[in-house]
Simulated scan of single mutants.
Amino acid sequence: MWGALAASSLLVGAVLALLRDWSARTVGLVLGFGAGALIASVSFELAEEGVRGGGALAVGAGLALGALAYALADRAVEGYAARGAGAAGLPLAVGALLDGIPEQVVLGGGLAAGGSVSVALLVAIFVSNLPESIGSSADMLGSGRSRTTVLGLWGVVAVVCTLATAGGAVAVAHAPDGVTAGIQGFAAGALLVMLIDSMIPEARKKGGELAGLATVVGFALAAGLSLLT
Results as ranks from 00 to 15, higher is better:
M194F: 10
E132S: 10
G62V: 00
G50K: 00
L163V: 14
A96M: 09
T26Q: 12
P91F: 08
A71N: 02
G109K: 06
K206R: 14
G189R: 04
G212C: 07
L195M: 15
T165S: 12
A88P: 00
L227I: 12
M194R: 10
G109F: 05
L122R: 08
A223E: 14
P201W: 09
A181D: 05
L57P: 08
R20W: 10
E45P: 01
G36V: 07
D74I: 01
S146A: 13
A211F: 06
A173Q: 08
T162D: 02
L18H: 14
G86C: 01
A96S: 13
A169M: 12
V119R: 13
Y70E: 02
G13W: 03
A85H: 06
R52Y: 09
S8C: 07
V94F: 05
L153W: 13
L65A: 14
G185L: 04
A35L: 09
S41E: 06
S226M: 11
L90R: 03
V119P: 05
G178M: 06
A188F: 14
T148H: 13
G152Q: 12
Y80L: 14
L228C: 08
T148M: 15
A69P: 02
V51T: 04
T26P: 05
G36D: 02
A67K: 06
G178Y: 08
G115M: 13
G89D: 01
L65P: 03
A73K: 01
E132T: 08
E209S: 11
V217D: 13
A35T: 08
A40L: 09
L213P: 03
F186V: 15
E202W: 06
A6Y: 04
G36N: 10
A76G: 12
W154R: 10
F126C: 08
G114W: 02
D197V: 13
T148E: 15
V51I: 14
V106W: 05
V172Y: 05
A56S: 06
G185Q: 05
V159P: 05
V217E: 03
A181M: 09
I183G: 00
L227C: 07
S226W: 09
L210T: 08
S8L: 11
A69I: 03
L31E: 07
G62D: 04
A173W: 04
S116R: 15
A56N: 02
T162R: 02
G208Y: 05
A71K: 04
L5R: 07
L141S: 15
Q184S: 13
S137W: 13
G66D: 02
L130D: 09
V170A: 15
P201E: 12
L92I: 05
A61Y: 03
G152F: 11
D197P: 07
G100E: 13
V119Q: 06
D177C: 07
A35K: 00
D21V: 12
H174F: 14
P131C: 14
R147N: 12
S226G: 09
A7P: 01
V172P: 00
G110L: 13
L111D: 06
P176L: 14
A158Q: 04
L221H: 06
G95R: 02
M140Q: 15
R147V: 13
C161V: 10
V179F: 14
A71R: 08
L38F: 09
K206L: 13
T215N: 07
A87K: 08
G135E: 08
L130P: 06
A222V: 10
L68M: 04
T162M: 03
A187H: 09
T149G: 13
A61Q: 12
V42S: 00
